[in-house]
Design a protein around this nucleic acid. Sequence first.
DNA 1: AATGAATGAGTTTTCATTCAT
DNA 2: TATGAATGAAAACTCATTCAT
Lengths: 225, 225, 225, 225
Amino acid sequence: MKPGKRNDLTTADRGEVLDTRRIVLDVARSEFALKGLAGARVDEIADKAGVNKQAIYYHFGNKDDLFRATLDSCYEDIRAQNKAYAAAAPVTPARNAVRSLIEHMFDRIEKRSEIVQLIMDENRYQGRHLTNTGLISSSDDPLVDHLRAVFKVGEAAGEIASGIDVEQFFMDIIALCIFYFSNIYTVSAVMDRDLAAPRAVRARRRHIVRQLMASLSPAASADVG
Amino acid sequence: MKPGKRNDLTTADRGEVLDTRRIVLDVARSEFALKGLAGARVDEIADKAGVNKQAIYYHFGNKDDLFRATLDSCYEDIRAQNKAYAAAAPVTPARNAVRSLIEHMFDRIEKRSEIVQLIMDENRYQGRHLTNTGLISSSDDPLVDHLRAVFKVGEAAGEIASGIDVEQFFMDIIALCIFYFSNIYTVSAVMDRDLAAPRAVRARRRHIVRQLMASLSPAASADVG
Amino acid sequence: MKPGKRNDLTTADRGEVLDTRRIVLDVARSEFALKGLAGARVDEIADKAGVNKQAIYYHFGNKDDLFRATLDSCYEDIRAQNKAYAAAAPVTPARNAVRSLIEHMFDRIEKRSEIVQLIMDENRYQGRHLTNTGLISSSDDPLVDHLRAVFKVGEAAGEIASGIDVEQFFMDIIALCIFYFSNIYTVSAVMDRDLAAPRAVRARRRHIVRQLMASLSPAASADVG
Amino acid sequence: MKPGKRNDLTTADRGEVLDTRRIVLDVARSEFALKGLAGARVDEIADKAGVNKQAIYYHFGNKDDLFRATLDSCYEDIRAQNKAYAAAAPVTPARNAVRSLIEHMFDRIEKRSEIVQLIMDENRYQGRHLTNTGLISSSDDPLVDHLRAVFKVGEAAGEIASGIDVEQFFMDIIALCIFYFSNIYTVSAVMDRDLAAPRAVRARRRHIVRQLMASLSPAASADVG
DNA sequence: AATGAATGAGTTTTCATTCAT
DNA sequence: TATGAATGAAAACTCATTCAT
């Protein structure tokens, strides 16, 4: 009578069930992103999803598990997008490939900042809601693999400095892109500027690309010594 | 009935009054940092501060205003630290000066991540709790000013590429340093590594310094085209 | 999540639901009448009604809305009683009809002074809790209509002075009856008599009837000039 | 160290003390009138009076005693006004004297409805805050005495029906005048008219005078039989 | 699975009153 | 007396969760 998760239904109304789960997860994602795990309300999620509150408990168990499932679905989305990008993106010319990836990440994060918010909130709980299901180890991550291939080519061609740690560089991309959007209000206030304005966003995008590309330059690398 | 702030007392018991406010703010800072505005409990803050709960309402009005005051005190701290650093740090040699600043910011954020957590949470509320009191516009910010001076010298000496936007570069520093610590749990999980381990932290610190320094190289800048 | 009112249930448990609302309203009526909106306690109402406090919030929203609903139910009762009286009362002979009405109002108010107390308290809040639902405009009021008919007959028969404003006269009845019961303690003190004593009540009733009837006399009216 | 009341000071600052008491009582009167004993706030009274909250406790003991003192001062005012009116008003011609008294009461109550509100609230507490100090027994009441004299004259002159109970008639005046102002919001709502509008007030005043005068007519009295 | 109602433990806030100087 | 600070009890309201149908 109280099933934890449920992706194995075979009954006729499976369609509806999946719909309920899906719509609740969608609403939960935006609510949790907006207000955090502590600030979001089960009542409100139920209302906005147009389902009875009890349905949430039936399908997800409790609030924490709903958060878990929501996080999971975020990671699934991320993985799917990463895979899709890696499958389509050319590896060469190397510098172009890197630049494309940076721009893609920036744009993706700008568009889907909900996911970022949600994941950032999870850090408050020290990763307690992370499941094995949703995670990909970076070794498997299609984007890191892609970048690794690109770097290999680029280093060989002398376009990219050798010795740069791919995972660290990937984190640089993520960090620079995420930070801008997740701290836009406080930084705007401190800087007394509207960082959400389209031209400010474009300027930041341009800068991040240039910054990251410059750091890959073989000449620069020698300079750092 | 409701005292705003109070830095003009001259009576003997000034110590106690300030103590109450101060200790509450200290506790509030760590509680809000740890659990967020929504997750923190006024009761718990009062308990941990060893004061009567009503004392919090007497001194700060309500939970939101307490959060406001706490944010304020964070910004004051930041300002004070920035000012102190800028006053003491040499401008030349330029590359050393930049490197020092980066390392300083990394270390500061590692040590005082509470403040960062608090400010990041405020973005959830769209800057609603920011007061004019606590803020510094970046034009006045001692660190940005310092960096500006360093860049000027560095550009003249041909050590730093010209045309780099100081504020954007400053944001790069902040972004790279903050991201690592504020997302350490989820990134650790995704990467299947313990990013909190001392050697991982050291490695990241080294990388960030190298990354940022490389991006300043005049040679690299030419490379970006 | 928050059910407004609910008079359309068809399920078997309708009884219970209505019971909860009904019993809460009953208790609320006497508590609010006794202590006023400000003085009544939600906790106490819940206790006396034998329901969980949250049930009150579930059904009524908040204390103010509970007061609103209570007021509403009072006005419904009044309307029902007015309608019942008007339906049964003969219009003629006119003076008898008026006398009956006065006595009925006096007796009703003596018996149901709760309602009066409640409505009087609402004046403190400037009618803020009045809803359209509960109200009857006096033009529709069965008692005023009845009185109008009686006056018409009475005037034609020369038993009642012509030119007397029916609504004003109706207010006279209400005022005289209500004042006695709602100010019984202070007036008793000032007069150093016990106005609540049965014989005092009877004397007042007799006086009010005589007073009002006298004022209707055609002869008296001429006297006023 | 905690004096109950205090009207026997002989120190130099007696002036100030009386001022404090006076201003607190004034503010308390309007606050209690507006919000009732339960709804008024000691904090707010202190604030509006511009005195320290503790001063209220020093001078009046507690909230209930403050209410008591406020009630007291209201009754003192009433007595003073009654005495002044009775001293100045002519007894004859009788009907004019009655009419004047009615109009005076109506106008007084319209102007000083605060006092009425306060006293009406006290009925909620069953006269528990009434002190002997503030009260006058009706036998002493200058207005009732005055009215008694007027009736005597009027009866002798055949202008006023004999056998009318003076105290009952006095209550009629009070009831009709007070009811209008103390129930103006709810009655306005029920009647769908604005009873606070100047012309409505004037109409009511005119009606009340006529109503009461008519009831005194010897001819009418015979009619009542 | 869906729904309305219920519930108990919390959570913020209020308020009269007292303390200490 | 005057004042800022403190305090504990209570009050309104919230919220995750469960019940019963």
